[in-house]
Amino acid sequence: MSRPFRLAATAVALLAALAAATASATSAAAAPAPQHRQLSALAQTPGTAWTVDPVTGRTTVTLDDTVTEQQAARLRDDLRGTAVDLRREPGRLRTMLAGGDAIYGSTARCSLGANARRGTTYYLITAGHCTNTSADWWTDSAHTIAIGVRTASSFPSNDFGLIRYTSKLEHPSAVNTYPGLLQLYGTGSAYVGQAVCRSGATTGVRCGTVTALNATVNYAEGTVTGLIRTNICAENGDSGGPLYTTGGILLGILSGGTGNCTTGGTTYYQPIGEILSVYGLTIP
């Protein structure tokens, strides 16, 4: 699962590069230009995630429980005086194998994110770390009711995949809200502070707010970029489920996160617009 965090000798160079990238995109109020422009190994270190505030230009680096206190202390020392905030998030950054409705591969249980189509061909969208595990998918753990077959999968870097319907199952443009269905009326782009909910096969509907955009997450399996971060909890099996507004606007699908729904957690989502654009899909 997670590999131990290894503090790269060029950690400061990475964080300076992050601040510099923000400075060029925002204003001179951001951190000073660094001595080194190349991202260090920390950018792909399992157990870490980072985001840049588009207003202040400050970088926030989060560490999960696989990062030791000794390593964290070393990093705090290295970052003293920089425009970088370092903080802990409980639990371990992980993809959540196991919206809405449960879907079963040969070895994984995940959640359906959205139904989409290209012309008259229908697909379901879910997380790429889910579709990587299996070519065939079913509605039940006994594998008696077929859904369809994987036609595309992208993970890491991205975290989305497609399953083409080969059965006559109904595929409404809706989210399972346990109980009942919420009709989807379109897609949108998330913004910080937005009130949102997610639906998943393990923990049902949970709600909260968007806390950051364009997040980079370093899972043990690889790095995923451009994600939406929220303060909503999730657990294994919720992966791939939809992030949406109560007005029926779809925003993304669940990639992973930390914590659980007993003590709370943080979750990250692949924006839906990118997925539709990459595959030429529309939401029915």
Rank of each mutant, 00 (worst) to 15 (best):
G128V: 14
Y178P: 02
M96F: 14
A201K: 08
T282K: 08
P4V: 11
T266R: 13
P46C: 02
Y185P: 01
N132Y: 09
P34Y: 05
I275Y: 13
T263H: 06
A127N: 02
Y279R: 04
R117M: 10
S153H: 12
Q44P: 03
I147Y: 05
A21E: 15
T95F: 13
R109Y: 11
S199D: 10
T211L: 03
R229H: 06
T121R: 13
T60M: 04
A127I: 07
H143W: 11
R94E: 14
H143N: 09
G241W: 15
A220N: 13
P32A: 02
T177S: 00
S255W: 02
C130M: 03
L97V: 08
Y123R: 05
A11L: 12
G247F: 13
E274I: 11
M1V: 12
V61D: 00
L162S: 08
P156K: 06
A8H: 15
T230Q: 07
T120A: 03
L182R: 13
L169I: 15
G193V: 11
G240Y: 12
T22V: 14
T68K: 03
S167H: 14
F5L: 14
A152V: 10
L14A: 01
R6E: 15
F160I: 01
A98Y: 15
D77W: 04
V210A: 01
H129C: 05
T66L: 01
G100V: 10
Y178N: 13
T202V: 07
A30C: 15
R150L: 02
T66C: 00
A73F: 13
T131Q: 01
E89T: 08
N236L: 09
I125H: 01
P172D: 07
R118D: 07
H143K: 13
G148T: 04
E69R: 14
L182H: 04
T223D: 04
Q70M: 06
G265H: 07
N115L: 02
H171L: 06
V12H: 09
W50L: 04
V52F: 04
A8F: 15
T10H: 03
T202E: 06
S153F: 12
R87P: 04
I253L: 11
G248N: 06
I249M: 06
L42K: 03
T120F: 06
G240F: 09
L14M: 12
Q70Y: 10
G186C: 07
A9E: 14
G128K: 09
G188K: 12
R37N: 06
A33M: 13
S199V: 10
K168I: 13
A215Y: 00
V61R: 04
G188C: 02
Q44D: 13
T45I: 10
G256C: 04
T223K: 14
V55A: 01
A102F: 15
S153R: 09
G264Y: 12
Y279I: 01
T266G: 00
R92M: 03
E69Y: 08
H143Q: 12
R164Y: 08
T48R: 05
R76W: 13
I147F: 05
